[in-house]
Design a protein around this nucleic acid. Structure first.
Ligand code: NAD
Ligand code: NAD
Lengths: 242, 242
DNA sequence: ATAGCGCTGTGAACGAAATCACAGCGTTAC
DNA sequence: GTAACGCTGTGATTTCGTTCACAGCGCTAT
Protein backbone atom coordinates (compact mmCIF):
# COMPACT_ATOMS: atom_id res chain seq x y z
CA UNK A 1 0.00 0.00 0.00
CA UNK A 2 2.58 2.57 1.05
CA UNK A 3 5.02 2.67 -1.85
CA UNK A 4 8.12 2.60 0.23
CA UNK A 5 11.36 2.85 -1.66
CA UNK A 6 12.09 -0.67 -2.74
CA UNK A 7 15.28 -1.86 -4.31
CA UNK A 8 15.01 -3.90 -7.46
CA UNK A 9 18.22 -5.86 -7.59
CA UNK A 10 18.68 -6.27 -3.85
CA UNK A 11 15.49 -8.00 -2.77
CA UNK A 12 13.76 -6.34 0.15
CA UNK A 13 10.68 -7.24 2.07
CA UNK A 14 7.34 -7.47 0.35
CA UNK A 15 4.26 -9.15 1.79
CA UNK A 16 4.62 -12.24 -0.33
CA UNK A 17 8.33 -12.57 0.27
CA UNK A 18 7.82 -12.22 3.95
CA UNK A 19 5.17 -14.89 3.92
CA UNK A 20 7.50 -17.23 2.10
CA UNK A 21 10.49 -16.58 4.30
CA UNK A 22 8.47 -17.28 7.42
CA UNK A 23 7.98 -20.85 6.37
CA UNK A 24 4.56 -20.85 4.75
CA UNK A 25 4.45 -22.51 1.32
CA UNK A 26 1.68 -20.78 -0.54
CA UNK A 27 2.18 -22.62 -3.81
CA UNK A 28 -1.08 -23.64 -5.40
CA UNK A 29 -1.46 -26.75 -7.51
CA UNK A 30 -1.53 -24.92 -10.83
CA UNK A 31 1.50 -22.93 -9.78
CA UNK A 32 3.50 -26.05 -9.09
CA UNK A 33 2.51 -27.38 -12.48
CA UNK A 34 3.60 -24.22 -14.20
CA UNK A 35 6.88 -23.96 -12.36
CA UNK A 36 7.66 -27.53 -13.32
CA UNK A 37 7.01 -26.65 -16.94
CA UNK A 38 9.02 -23.43 -16.80
CA UNK A 39 12.03 -25.30 -15.59
CA UNK A 40 11.72 -28.06 -18.13
CA UNK A 41 11.35 -25.63 -20.99
CA UNK A 42 14.29 -23.58 -19.83
CA UNK A 43 16.48 -26.63 -19.56
CA UNK A 44 15.41 -27.79 -23.00
CA UNK A 45 16.58 -24.58 -24.66
CA UNK A 46 19.42 -24.80 -27.18
CA UNK A 47 22.83 -24.52 -25.59
CA UNK A 48 23.68 -21.22 -27.28
CA UNK A 49 20.73 -19.31 -25.84
CA UNK A 50 20.86 -15.97 -24.08
CA UNK A 51 21.57 -16.13 -20.37
CA UNK A 52 18.42 -14.21 -19.53
CA UNK A 53 14.82 -14.42 -20.63
CA UNK A 54 11.84 -12.07 -20.49
CA UNK A 55 8.50 -13.05 -19.08
CA UNK A 56 6.98 -12.82 -22.55
CA UNK A 57 9.44 -15.26 -24.03
CA UNK A 58 9.06 -17.78 -21.23
CA UNK A 59 5.30 -17.47 -21.47
CA UNK A 60 5.47 -18.19 -25.19
CA UNK A 61 7.54 -21.29 -24.54
CA UNK A 62 5.01 -22.57 -22.06
CA UNK A 63 1.73 -21.45 -23.55
CA UNK A 64 0.84 -19.01 -20.79
CA UNK A 65 0.72 -15.25 -20.42
CA UNK A 66 3.51 -12.95 -19.35
CA UNK A 67 1.47 -11.79 -16.37
CA UNK A 68 1.16 -15.37 -15.29
CA UNK A 69 4.88 -15.93 -15.43
CA UNK A 70 5.65 -12.78 -13.50
CA UNK A 71 3.08 -13.64 -10.86
CA UNK A 72 4.45 -17.14 -10.43
CA UNK A 73 8.05 -16.01 -10.14
CA UNK A 74 7.00 -13.35 -7.70
CA UNK A 75 5.34 -16.02 -5.60
CA UNK A 76 8.57 -17.96 -5.24
CA UNK A 77 10.40 -14.73 -4.48
CA UNK A 78 12.48 -14.71 -7.62
CA UNK A 79 13.07 -11.39 -9.31
CA UNK A 80 14.58 -10.24 -12.54
CA UNK A 81 15.71 -6.97 -13.97
CA UNK A 82 13.37 -4.86 -16.08
CA UNK A 83 16.06 -4.55 -18.67
CA UNK A 84 17.46 -8.05 -18.98
CA UNK A 85 14.61 -10.16 -17.70
CA UNK A 86 15.26 -13.24 -15.58
CA UNK A 87 18.61 -14.98 -15.27
CA UNK A 88 17.92 -18.44 -16.65
CA UNK A 89 20.52 -20.32 -14.66
CA UNK A 90 19.45 -18.77 -11.40
CA UNK A 91 15.80 -19.26 -12.20
CA UNK A 92 16.29 -22.96 -12.79
CA UNK A 93 18.01 -23.11 -9.43
CA UNK A 94 15.28 -21.18 -7.68
CA UNK A 95 12.56 -23.43 -9.07
CA UNK A 96 14.55 -26.44 -8.00
CA UNK A 97 14.86 -25.08 -4.49
CA UNK A 98 11.10 -24.78 -4.48
CA UNK A 99 10.07 -28.07 -6.07
CA UNK A 100 12.85 -30.47 -5.25
CA UNK A 101 13.60 -32.18 -2.03
CA UNK A 102 17.25 -31.41 -1.28
CA UNK A 103 17.69 -34.98 -0.07
CA UNK A 104 16.01 -36.43 -3.13
CA UNK A 105 12.75 -38.34 -3.29
CA UNK A 106 12.19 -41.90 -4.31
CA UNK A 107 9.17 -43.42 -6.01
CA UNK A 108 7.86 -46.96 -6.42
CA UNK A 109 5.98 -48.20 -9.45
CA UNK A 110 3.51 -51.03 -8.97
CA UNK A 111 2.25 -53.05 -11.93
CA UNK A 112 4.97 -53.77 -14.48
CA UNK A 113 2.63 -54.32 -17.43
CA UNK A 114 2.55 -52.53 -20.75
CA UNK A 115 2.07 -49.08 -19.32
CA UNK A 116 4.29 -49.73 -16.33
CA UNK A 117 7.21 -50.73 -18.52
CA UNK A 118 6.81 -47.67 -20.72
CA UNK A 119 6.80 -45.44 -17.66
CA UNK A 120 9.83 -47.15 -16.15
CA UNK A 121 11.71 -46.40 -19.33
CA UNK A 122 10.47 -42.84 -19.35
CA UNK A 123 11.32 -42.04 -15.76
CA UNK A 124 14.80 -43.50 -15.83
CA UNK A 125 15.77 -40.88 -18.39
CA UNK A 126 14.91 -38.17 -15.86
CA UNK A 127 16.91 -36.41 -13.22
CA UNK A 128 18.06 -38.38 -10.21
CA UNK A 129 16.47 -36.04 -7.71
CA UNK A 130 13.15 -37.80 -8.16
CA UNK A 131 13.66 -41.29 -9.41
CA UNK A 132 11.75 -44.55 -9.49
CA UNK A 133 13.78 -46.61 -7.09
CA UNK A 134 11.79 -49.85 -7.16
CA UNK A 135 9.06 -51.63 -9.09
CA UNK A 136 6.64 -54.31 -7.91
CA UNK A 137 4.41 -56.93 -9.48
CA UNK A 138 2.49 -60.02 -8.40
CA UNK A 139 3.41 -61.95 -11.51
CA UNK A 140 6.43 -64.15 -10.69
CA UNK A 141 7.42 -64.02 -14.35
CA UNK A 142 8.11 -60.35 -13.97
CA UNK A 143 9.80 -60.19 -10.61
CA UNK A 144 13.47 -60.65 -9.91
CA UNK A 145 14.49 -59.02 -13.16
CA UNK A 146 15.83 -55.53 -13.69
CA UNK A 147 13.81 -53.52 -16.22
CA UNK A 148 15.16 -50.25 -17.54
CA UNK A 149 17.59 -50.14 -14.68
CA UNK A 150 14.95 -50.71 -12.05
CA UNK A 151 14.67 -53.87 -10.02
CA UNK A 152 11.25 -55.55 -9.97
CA UNK A 153 10.28 -56.99 -6.60
CA UNK A 154 7.49 -59.33 -5.60
CA UNK A 155 4.57 -57.38 -4.21
CA UNK A 156 5.07 -59.08 -0.85
CA UNK A 157 8.32 -57.20 -0.37
CA UNK A 158 6.58 -53.87 -0.79
CA UNK A 159 6.48 -52.72 2.82
CA UNK A 160 10.05 -53.75 3.46
CA UNK A 161 11.54 -52.10 0.39
CA UNK A 162 9.48 -48.95 0.77
CA UNK A 163 10.66 -48.53 4.34
CA UNK A 164 14.25 -49.34 3.60
CA UNK A 165 14.52 -46.94 0.71
CA UNK A 166 12.41 -44.20 2.23
CA UNK A 167 9.98 -44.21 -0.68
CA UNK A 168 7.23 -41.60 -0.41
CA UNK A 169 5.75 -41.55 -3.92
CA UNK A 170 3.81 -44.32 -5.65
CA UNK A 171 3.02 -44.78 -9.33
CA UNK A 172 0.07 -47.11 -9.83
CA UNK A 173 -0.22 -49.06 -13.06
CA UNK A 174 -2.05 -52.11 -11.83
CA UNK A 175 -5.45 -53.27 -13.09
CA UNK A 176 -8.41 -51.28 -11.78
CA UNK A 177 -9.60 -54.10 -9.52
CA UNK A 178 -6.33 -54.19 -7.63
CA UNK A 179 -5.49 -50.52 -7.29
CA UNK A 180 -7.41 -49.67 -4.14
CA UNK A 181 -5.89 -52.49 -2.14
CA UNK A 182 -2.39 -51.87 -3.44
CA UNK A 183 -2.65 -48.19 -2.59
CA UNK A 184 -3.78 -48.96 0.93
CA UNK A 185 -0.85 -51.26 1.47
CA UNK A 186 1.46 -48.54 0.26
CA UNK A 187 -0.06 -45.98 2.60
CA UNK A 188 0.48 -48.40 5.46
CA UNK A 189 4.12 -48.66 4.42
CA UNK A 190 4.58 -44.88 4.40
CA UNK A 191 3.82 -43.70 0.88
CA UNK A 192 1.93 -40.40 0.90
CA UNK A 193 1.77 -39.30 -2.75
CA UNK A 194 0.27 -41.24 -5.64
CA UNK A 195 0.11 -41.00 -9.39
CA UNK A 196 -2.80 -43.24 -10.29
CA UNK A 197 -3.18 -44.49 -13.86
CA UNK A 198 -5.95 -46.95 -13.10
CA UNK A 199 -9.32 -45.63 -14.22
CA UNK A 200 -10.94 -45.61 -10.79
CA UNK A 201 -10.53 -42.87 -8.21
CA UNK A 202 -8.67 -43.84 -5.09
CA UNK A 203 -10.20 -43.39 -1.68
CA UNK A 204 -7.39 -42.85 0.74
CA UNK A 205 -7.19 -41.46 4.24
CA UNK A 206 -6.44 -37.80 4.83
CA UNK A 207 -2.85 -36.57 4.73
CA UNK A 208 -2.42 -38.23 1.40
CA UNK A 209 -2.11 -36.68 -2.03
CA UNK A 210 -3.51 -38.39 -5.10
CA UNK A 211 -3.11 -37.32 -8.69
CA UNK A 212 -5.51 -39.14 -10.96
CA UNK A 213 -4.12 -39.67 -14.45
CA UNK A 214 -7.45 -40.49 -15.99
CA UNK A 215 -6.65 -41.05 -19.64
CA UNK A 216 -10.15 -42.18 -20.50
CA UNK A 217 -11.64 -38.99 -19.15
CA UNK A 218 -9.02 -36.90 -20.92
CA UNK A 219 -9.85 -38.62 -24.16
CA UNK A 220 -13.56 -37.96 -23.72
CA UNK A 221 -12.81 -34.36 -22.88
CA UNK A 222 -10.86 -33.89 -26.06
CA UNK A 223 -13.61 -35.56 -28.05
CA UNK A 224 -16.26 -33.37 -26.49
CA UNK A 225 -14.51 -30.07 -27.07
CA UNK A 226 -13.32 -31.11 -30.51
CA UNK A 227 -16.93 -31.72 -31.37
CA UNK A 228 -17.96 -28.38 -29.90
CA UNK A 229 -15.38 -26.69 -32.09
CA UNK A 230 -16.60 -28.35 -35.23
CA UNK A 231 -20.26 -27.81 -34.46
CA UNK A 232 -20.97 -24.45 -32.91
CA UNK A 233 -18.92 -21.28 -33.01
CA UNK A 234 -17.04 -22.19 -29.92
CA UNK A 235 -13.55 -22.19 -28.49
CA UNK A 236 -12.52 -23.72 -25.20
CA UNK A 237 -8.76 -23.77 -25.23
CA UNK A 238 -7.16 -21.63 -27.86
CA UNK A 239 -3.52 -21.74 -28.68
CA UNK A 240 -1.79 -19.23 -30.81
CA UNK A 241 0.22 -20.27 -33.78
CA UNK A 242 3.97 -20.46 -33.22
CA UNK B 1 -36.82 -16.44 -7.36
CA UNK B 2 -40.58 -16.93 -7.51
CA UNK B 3 -41.11 -20.45 -6.28
CA UNK B 4 -43.61 -21.44 -8.94
CA UNK B 5 -45.09 -24.86 -8.53
CA UNK B 6 -42.66 -27.14 -10.22
CA UNK B 7 -43.23 -30.77 -10.95
CA UNK B 8 -40.52 -33.13 -9.85
CA UNK B 9 -41.01 -36.15 -12.05
CA UNK B 10 -42.30 -34.33 -15.09
CA UNK B 11 -39.53 -31.87 -15.85
CA UNK B 12 -40.68 -28.30 -16.34
CA UNK B 13 -38.85 -25.18 -17.29
CA UNK B 14 -36.06 -23.84 -15.14
CA UNK B 15 -33.51 -21.27 -16.26
CA UNK B 16 -30.75 -23.77 -16.77
CA UNK B 17 -32.96 -26.25 -18.55
CA UNK B 18 -34.21 -23.54 -20.85
CA UNK B 19 -30.65 -22.50 -21.64
CA UNK B 20 -29.77 -26.03 -22.52
CA UNK B 21 -32.83 -26.66 -24.66
CA UNK B 22 -32.15 -23.54 -26.69
CA UNK B 23 -28.93 -25.00 -27.97
CA UNK B 24 -26.27 -23.48 -25.72
CA UNK B 25 -23.83 -26.02 -24.30
CA UNK B 26 -22.68 -24.56 -21.03
CA UNK B 27 -20.58 -27.51 -19.97
CA UNK B 28 -17.32 -26.47 -18.38
CA UNK B 29 -14.16 -28.52 -18.63
CA UNK B 30 -14.32 -29.86 -15.10
CA UNK B 31 -17.96 -30.77 -15.61
CA UNK B 32 -17.17 -32.82 -18.68
CA UNK B 33 -14.47 -34.60 -16.73
CA UNK B 34 -16.82 -35.39 -13.91
CA UNK B 35 -19.63 -36.55 -16.15
CA UNK B 36 -17.24 -38.88 -17.90
CA UNK B 37 -16.26 -40.33 -14.56
CA UNK B 38 -19.85 -40.61 -13.31
CA UNK B 39 -20.75 -42.68 -16.33
CA UNK B 40 -17.72 -44.90 -16.09
CA UNK B 41 -18.28 -45.59 -12.42
CA UNK B 42 -21.96 -46.31 -12.95
CA UNK B 43 -21.19 -48.74 -15.74
CA UNK B 44 -18.56 -50.44 -13.63
CA UNK B 45 -21.01 -51.23 -10.85
CA UNK B 46 -21.74 -54.89 -10.09
CA UNK B 47 -24.57 -56.28 -12.17
CA UNK B 48 -26.87 -56.85 -9.19
CA UNK B 49 -26.92 -53.22 -8.10
CA UNK B 50 -29.99 -51.12 -7.34
CA UNK B 51 -31.56 -49.43 -10.34
CA UNK B 52 -31.28 -46.01 -8.73
CA UNK B 53 -28.55 -44.17 -6.89
CA UNK B 54 -28.43 -41.16 -4.58
CA UNK B 55 -26.16 -38.22 -5.11
CA UNK B 56 -24.23 -39.16 -1.99
CA UNK B 57 -23.51 -42.65 -3.23
CA UNK B 58 -22.41 -41.50 -6.66
CA UNK B 59 -20.25 -38.83 -5.09
CA UNK B 60 -18.59 -41.46 -2.92
CA UNK B 61 -17.87 -43.58 -5.98
CA UNK B 62 -16.25 -40.66 -7.72
CA UNK B 63 -14.54 -38.85 -4.90
CA UNK B 64 -16.65 -35.71 -5.09
CA UNK B 65 -19.37 -34.17 -2.99
CA UNK B 66 -23.09 -34.77 -3.23
CA UNK B 67 -23.67 -31.11 -3.99
CA UNK B 68 -21.28 -31.38 -6.87
CA UNK B 69 -23.10 -34.33 -8.33
CA UNK B 70 -26.48 -32.66 -8.03
CA UNK B 71 -25.19 -29.47 -9.60
CA UNK B 72 -23.67 -31.37 -12.52
CA UNK B 73 -26.79 -33.41 -13.19
CA UNK B 74 -28.86 -30.28 -12.95
CA UNK B 75 -26.65 -28.69 -15.59
CA UNK B 76 -27.37 -31.44 -18.09
CA UNK B 77 -31.06 -31.24 -17.23
CA UNK B 78 -31.28 -34.65 -15.62
CA UNK B 79 -33.43 -34.99 -12.55
CA UNK B 80 -34.10 -37.67 -10.00
CA UNK B 81 -36.62 -38.26 -7.28
CA UNK B 82 -35.95 -37.19 -3.72
CA UNK B 83 -36.96 -40.59 -2.54
CA UNK B 84 -35.26 -42.94 -4.95
CA UNK B 85 -32.44 -40.81 -6.28
CA UNK B 86 -31.35 -41.01 -9.93
CA UNK B 87 -32.27 -43.79 -12.31
CA UNK B 88 -28.92 -45.28 -13.24
CA UNK B 89 -29.83 -46.56 -16.67
CA UNK B 90 -31.38 -43.29 -17.73
CA UNK B 91 -28.52 -41.31 -16.26
CA UNK B 92 -25.98 -43.26 -18.28
CA UNK B 93 -28.04 -42.50 -21.35
CA UNK B 94 -28.34 -38.83 -20.52
CA UNK B 95 -24.60 -38.45 -20.03
CA UNK B 96 -24.01 -40.24 -23.30
CA UNK B 97 -26.35 -37.88 -25.08
CA UNK B 98 -24.26 -35.06 -23.68
CA UNK B 99 -20.74 -36.37 -24.24
CA UNK B 100 -20.98 -38.70 -27.20
CA UNK B 101 -21.27 -37.83 -30.82
CA UNK B 102 -24.30 -39.76 -32.09
CA UNK B 103 -22.40 -40.52 -35.28
CA UNK B 104 -19.30 -41.64 -33.41
CA UNK B 105 -15.88 -40.02 -33.41
CA UNK B 106 -12.62 -41.43 -34.65
CA UNK B 107 -9.14 -40.79 -33.36
CA UNK B 108 -5.68 -41.27 -34.80
CA UNK B 109 -2.61 -42.16 -32.75
CA UNK B 110 0.78 -41.05 -34.02
CA UNK B 111 3.98 -42.62 -32.70
CA UNK B 112 3.68 -46.37 -32.18
CA UNK B 113 6.46 -46.65 -29.62
CA UNK B 114 6.33 -48.03 -26.11
CA UNK B 115 3.66 -45.66 -24.89
CA UNK B 116 1.79 -45.66 -28.17
CA UNK B 117 1.43 -49.44 -28.18
CA UNK B 118 0.21 -49.46 -24.58
CA UNK B 119 -2.39 -46.85 -25.42
CA UNK B 120 -3.51 -48.67 -28.54
CA UNK B 121 -4.16 -51.72 -26.41
CA UNK B 122 -5.95 -49.66 -23.82
CA UNK B 123 -8.23 -47.82 -26.20
CA UNK B 124 -9.29 -50.85 -28.18
CA UNK B 125 -10.90 -52.25 -25.07
CA UNK B 126 -13.16 -49.19 -24.93
CA UNK B 127 -16.54 -48.42 -26.41
CA UNK B 128 -16.81 -48.10 -30.17
CA UNK B 129 -18.35 -44.64 -30.03
CA UNK B 130 -14.91 -43.11 -29.69
CA UNK B 131 -12.30 -45.40 -31.09
CA UNK B 132 -8.76 -45.15 -32.38
CA UNK B 133 -9.30 -45.84 -36.06
CA UNK B 134 -5.75 -45.52 -37.32
CA UNK B 135 -2.15 -45.32 -36.12
CA UNK B 136 0.87 -43.75 -37.81
CA UNK B 137 4.63 -43.96 -37.54
CA UNK B 138 7.67 -42.96 -39.57
CA UNK B 139 9.52 -46.16 -38.81
CA UNK B 140 9.01 -48.57 -41.74
CA UNK B 141 9.52 -51.46 -39.35
CA UNK B 142 6.31 -50.50 -37.59
CA UNK B 143 4.05 -49.62 -40.49
CA UNK B 144 1.93 -52.02 -42.47
CA UNK B 145 1.21 -54.16 -39.45
CA UNK B 146 -1.96 -54.30 -37.39
CA UNK B 147 -1.35 -53.72 -33.69
CA UNK B 148 -4.09 -54.40 -31.18
CA UNK B 149 -6.59 -54.37 -33.97
CA UNK B 150 -5.42 -51.08 -35.36
CA UNK B 151 -3.66 -50.68 -38.66
CA UNK B 152 -0.37 -48.75 -38.58
CA UNK B 153 0.14 -46.47 -41.59
CA UNK B 154 3.21 -44.63 -42.80
CA UNK B 155 3.13 -41.03 -41.68
CA UNK B 156 2.93 -39.90 -45.29
CA UNK B 157 -0.57 -41.32 -45.57
CA UNK B 158 -1.76 -39.23 -42.66
CA UNK B 159 -3.71 -36.57 -44.53
CA UNK B 160 -5.37 -39.09 -46.79
CA UNK B 161 -6.45 -41.50 -44.05
CA UNK B 162 -7.59 -38.72 -41.74
CA UNK B 163 -9.79 -37.26 -44.44
CA UNK B 164 -11.16 -40.58 -45.58
CA UNK B 165 -12.09 -41.74 -42.12
CA UNK B 166 -13.27 -38.37 -40.86
CA UNK B 167 -10.83 -38.40 -37.96
CA UNK B 168 -11.11 -35.39 -35.66
CA UNK B 169 -9.08 -36.44 -32.61
CA UNK B 170 -5.34 -37.00 -32.41
CA UNK B 171 -3.30 -38.84 -29.79
CA UNK B 172 0.33 -37.78 -29.88
CA UNK B 173 2.98 -40.21 -28.64
CA UNK B 174 5.90 -39.15 -30.80
CA UNK B 175 9.22 -37.84 -29.46
CA UNK B 176 9.17 -34.26 -28.22
CA UNK B 177 11.18 -32.95 -31.18
CA UNK B 178 8.62 -34.20 -33.67
CA UNK B 179 5.35 -33.37 -31.97
CA UNK B 180 4.88 -29.79 -33.08
CA UNK B 181 5.32 -30.60 -36.73
CA UNK B 182 3.16 -33.72 -36.57
CA UNK B 183 0.39 -31.77 -34.86
CA UNK B 184 0.47 -29.07 -37.49
CA UNK B 185 0.16 -31.62 -40.24
CA UNK B 186 -2.82 -33.12 -38.47
CA UNK B 187 -4.49 -29.75 -38.10
CA UNK B 188 -4.02 -29.20 -41.81
CA UNK B 189 -5.72 -32.54 -42.42
CA UNK B 190 -8.72 -31.62 -40.27
CA UNK B 191 -7.94 -32.84 -36.75
CA UNK B 192 -9.17 -30.36 -34.13
CA UNK B 193 -8.66 -32.11 -30.78
CA UNK B 194 -5.39 -33.43 -29.38
CA UNK B 195 -4.22 -35.52 -26.49
CA UNK B 196 -0.54 -34.71 -26.23
CA UNK B 197 1.77 -37.02 -24.30
CA UNK B 198 4.97 -35.38 -25.43
CA UNK B 199 6.46 -33.20 -22.71
CA UNK B 200 6.31 -29.93 -24.64
CA UNK B 201 3.24 -27.73 -24.94
CA UNK B 202 1.77 -27.50 -28.42
CA UNK B 203 1.26 -24.18 -30.09
CA UNK B 204 -1.64 -24.56 -32.43
CA UNK B 205 -3.93 -22.09 -34.18
CA UNK B 206 -7.20 -21.07 -32.60
CA UNK B 207 -10.25 -23.30 -32.97
CA UNK B 208 -8.21 -26.20 -31.73
CA UNK B 209 -8.39 -28.00 -28.42
CA UNK B 210 -5.31 -29.43 -26.78
CA UNK B 211 -5.14 -31.56 -23.67
CA UNK B 212 -1.61 -31.80 -22.35
CA UNK B 213 -0.93 -35.12 -20.62
CA UNK B 214 2.20 -33.94 -18.91
CA UNK B 215 3.32 -36.91 -16.90
CA UNK B 216 6.55 -35.30 -15.80
CA UNK B 217 4.72 -32.35 -14.35
CA UNK B 218 2.19 -34.63 -12.67
CA UNK B 219 5.02 -36.57 -11.10
CA UNK B 220 6.66 -33.42 -9.80
CA UNK B 221 3.34 -32.24 -8.44
CA UNK B 222 2.86 -35.44 -6.52
CA UNK B 223 6.39 -35.24 -5.18
CA UNK B 224 5.93 -31.64 -4.10
CA UNK B 225 2.67 -32.17 -2.25
CA UNK B 226 3.81 -35.45 -0.81
CA UNK B 227 6.75 -33.59 0.65
CA UNK B 228 4.49 -30.84 1.95
CA UNK B 229 2.41 -33.48 3.71
CA UNK B 230 5.39 -35.07 5.38
CA UNK B 231 7.00 -31.78 6.35
CA UNK B 232 4.48 -29.19 7.52
CA UNK B 233 1.00 -29.71 8.84
CA UNK B 234 -0.54 -29.50 5.43
CA UNK B 235 -3.18 -31.13 3.29
CA UNK B 236 -3.80 -30.39 -0.34
CA UNK B 237 -6.02 -33.16 -1.58
CA UNK B 238 -7.65 -35.20 1.10
CA UNK B 239 -9.51 -38.37 0.46
CA UNK B 240 -11.62 -40.08 3.00
CA UNK B 241 -11.06 -43.68 3.82
CA UNK B 242 -13.39 -46.11 2.04
C1' DA C 1 22.92 14.66 -19.90
C1' DT C 2 18.26 13.52 -20.73
C1' DA C 3 14.08 11.72 -22.90
C1' DG C 4 11.55 7.86 -23.85
C1' DC C 5 10.69 3.07 -24.00
C1' DG C 6 9.61 -1.34 -22.12
C1' DC C 7 9.95 -4.50 -18.57
C1' DT C 8 9.22 -5.96 -13.77
C1' DG C 9 6.61 -6.21 -9.44
C1' DT C 10 2.21 -6.00 -7.52
C1' DG C 11 -2.36 -4.16 -5.78
C1' DA C 12 -6.85 -4.45 -7.44
C1' DA C 13 -10.60 -6.04 -10.27
C1' DC C 14 -12.65 -9.80 -12.35
C1' DG C 15 -14.50 -14.38 -13.29
C1' DA C 16 -15.40 -18.99 -12.60
C1' DA C 17 -15.93 -22.98 -9.92
C1' DA C 18 -16.90 -25.06 -5.50
C1' DT C 19 -19.62 -25.00 -1.56
C1' DC C 20 -23.37 -23.66 1.44
C1' DA C 21 -27.98 -23.60 2.79
C1' DC C 22 -32.65 -24.27 2.47
C1' DA C 23 -37.43 -24.74 0.42
C1' DG C 24 -40.38 -28.24 -1.21
C1' DC C 25 -41.87 -32.74 -1.53
C1' DG C 26 -42.18 -37.99 -1.38
C1' DT C 27 -41.66 -41.57 1.80
C1' DT C 28 -41.79 -44.12 5.84
C1' DA C 29 -43.01 -45.00 10.72
C1' DC C 30 -46.37 -45.12 13.93
C1' DG D 1 -53.84 -39.90 8.99
C1' DT D 2 -50.07 -37.37 10.39
C1' DA D 3 -45.48 -36.17 11.75
C1' DA D 4 -40.77 -36.38 10.97
C1' DC D 5 -37.04 -37.39 7.97
C1' DG D 6 -33.98 -37.08 4.05
C1' DC D 7 -33.18 -36.15 -0.55
C1' DT D 8 -33.39 -33.17 -4.68
C1' DG D 9 -33.09 -28.72 -7.10
C1' DT D 10 -31.19 -24.34 -6.93
C1' DG D 11 -30.27 -19.37 -5.38
C1' DA D 12 -26.73 -17.30 -2.74
C1' DT D 13 -22.18 -17.09 -1.06
C1' DT D 14 -17.44 -18.01 -0.72
C1' DT D 15 -13.13 -19.28 -2.35
C1' DC D 16 -9.57 -19.30 -5.51
C1' DG D 17 -7.13 -18.44 -9.77
C1' DT D 18 -6.52 -15.39 -13.55
C1' DT D 19 -6.13 -11.06 -15.68
C1' DC D 20 -5.75 -6.05 -15.65
C1' DA D 21 -3.37 -1.93 -15.08
C1' DC D 22 0.08 0.93 -13.67
C1' DA D 23 3.99 2.84 -10.78
C1' DG D 24 8.84 2.71 -10.68
C1' DC D 25 13.04 2.05 -12.65
C1' DG D 26 17.12 0.79 -15.84
C1' DC D 27 18.69 0.86 -20.24
C1' DT D 28 19.47 2.78 -24.76
C1' DA D 29 19.53 6.33 -28.12
C1' DT D 30 20.39 10.83 -29.15
N1 NAD E 1 -2.12 -49.49 -21.22
C1 NAD E 1 -2.42 -48.20 -21.21
O1 NAD E 1 -2.02 -47.45 -22.08
C2 NAD E 1 -3.22 -47.62 -20.11
C3 NAD E 1 -3.72 -46.34 -20.25
C4 NAD E 1 -4.46 -45.77 -19.22
C5 NAD E 1 -4.68 -46.51 -18.08
N2 NAD E 1 -4.19 -47.73 -17.95
C6 NAD E 1 -4.42 -48.46 -16.72
O2 NAD E 1 -3.17 -48.82 -16.20
C7 NAD E 1 -3.27 -50.09 -15.60
C8 NAD E 1 -2.30 -51.04 -16.23
O3 NAD E 1 -2.52 -51.11 -17.62
P1 NAD E 1 -1.65 -52.08 -18.53
O4 NAD E 1 -2.13 -51.89 -19.91
O5 NAD E 1 -0.24 -51.88 -18.26
O6 NAD E 1 -2.11 -53.52 -18.02
P2 NAD E 1 -1.24 -54.85 -17.98
O7 NAD E 1 -2.18 -55.96 -17.76
O8 NAD E 1 -0.34 -54.89 -19.13
O9 NAD E 1 -0.33 -54.68 -16.68
C9 NAD E 1 -0.83 -54.87 -15.40
C10 NAD E 1 0.31 -55.38 -14.54
O10 NAD E 1 -0.09 -55.32 -13.17
C11 NAD E 1 0.28 -56.57 -12.57
N3 NAD E 1 -0.61 -56.77 -11.44
C12 NAD E 1 -1.86 -57.27 -11.44
N4 NAD E 1 -2.35 -57.27 -10.19
C13 NAD E 1 -1.40 -56.77 -9.39
C14 NAD E 1 -1.32 -56.53 -8.01
N5 NAD E 1 -2.35 -56.78 -7.19
N6 NAD E 1 -0.18 -56.00 -7.53
C15 NAD E 1 0.84 -55.72 -8.36
N7 NAD E 1 0.83 -55.94 -9.67
C16 NAD E 1 -0.29 -56.47 -10.17
C17 NAD E 1 0.16 -57.59 -13.66
O11 NAD E 1 0.98 -58.71 -13.35
C18 NAD E 1 0.67 -56.82 -14.86
O12 NAD E 1 2.07 -56.91 -14.96
C19 NAD E 1 -4.71 -50.51 -15.75
O13 NAD E 1 -5.44 -50.11 -14.61
C20 NAD E 1 -5.17 -49.72 -16.93
O14 NAD E 1 -6.57 -49.49 -16.87
C21 NAD E 1 -3.45 -48.32 -18.95
N1 NAD F 1 7.12 -43.93 -22.38
C1 NAD F 1 6.38 -43.29 -21.51
O1 NAD F 1 5.87 -43.85 -20.57
C2 NAD F 1 6.09 -41.84 -21.68
C3 NAD F 1 5.53 -41.14 -20.64
C4 NAD F 1 5.24 -39.78 -20.81
C5 NAD F 1 5.51 -39.17 -22.00
N2 NAD F 1 6.07 -39.88 -22.99
C6 NAD F 1 6.32 -39.20 -24.25
O2 NAD F 1 5.64 -39.89 -25.27
C7 NAD F 1 6.42 -39.88 -26.44
C8 NAD F 1 6.72 -41.30 -26.88
O3 NAD F 1 7.36 -41.99 -25.85
P1 NAD F 1 7.83 -43.50 -26.05
O4 NAD F 1 8.43 -43.95 -24.79
O5 NAD F 1 6.70 -44.30 -26.60
O6 NAD F 1 8.97 -43.33 -27.16
P2 NAD F 1 9.39 -44.38 -28.29
O7 NAD F 1 10.70 -43.94 -28.80
O8 NAD F 1 9.24 -45.76 -27.77
O9 NAD F 1 8.30 -44.19 -29.41
C9 NAD F 1 8.31 -43.10 -30.28
C10 NAD F 1 7.69 -43.57 -31.61
O10 NAD F 1 7.45 -42.46 -32.44
C11 NAD F 1 7.92 -42.76 -33.74
N3 NAD F 1 8.24 -41.50 -34.39
C12 NAD F 1 9.36 -40.76 -34.29
N4 NAD F 1 9.26 -39.63 -35.01
C13 NAD F 1 8.04 -39.68 -35.60
C14 NAD F 1 7.36 -38.82 -36.48
N5 NAD F 1 7.88 -37.66 -36.89
N6 NAD F 1 6.14 -39.17 -36.87
C15 NAD F 1 5.58 -40.34 -36.46
N7 NAD F 1 6.17 -41.17 -35.62
C16 NAD F 1 7.41 -40.86 -35.20
C17 NAD F 1 9.09 -43.67 -33.54
O11 NAD F 1 9.31 -44.45 -34.71
C18 NAD F 1 8.62 -44.51 -32.38
O12 NAD F 1 7.88 -45.61 -32.81
C19 NAD F 1 7.67 -39.08 -26.12
O13 NAD F 1 7.44 -37.73 -26.46
C20 NAD F 1 7.76 -39.20 -24.63
O14 NAD F 1 8.41 -38.10 -24.07
C21 NAD F 1 6.36 -41.20 -22.87
Amino acid sequence: MSPSGMGMVVPEETPVRRARRTGAKPLSEPQVSRLSLYRRQLQARPLASPATIHSHALAALCGTSAAHVRRDLMTIGFNGSPARGYDVEQLIGAIGRELDDPDGQRAALVGVGQLGRALLDYFTTRRPNLRVAAAFDVDPAKTGRVIHGCRVWPLDDLAEVVREQGITVGVLTVPAEAVQEVAERMVAAGVVGFLNFAPVPLRLPARTFVEEMDITTSMERVAYFARALVAGGRRKDEHRAG
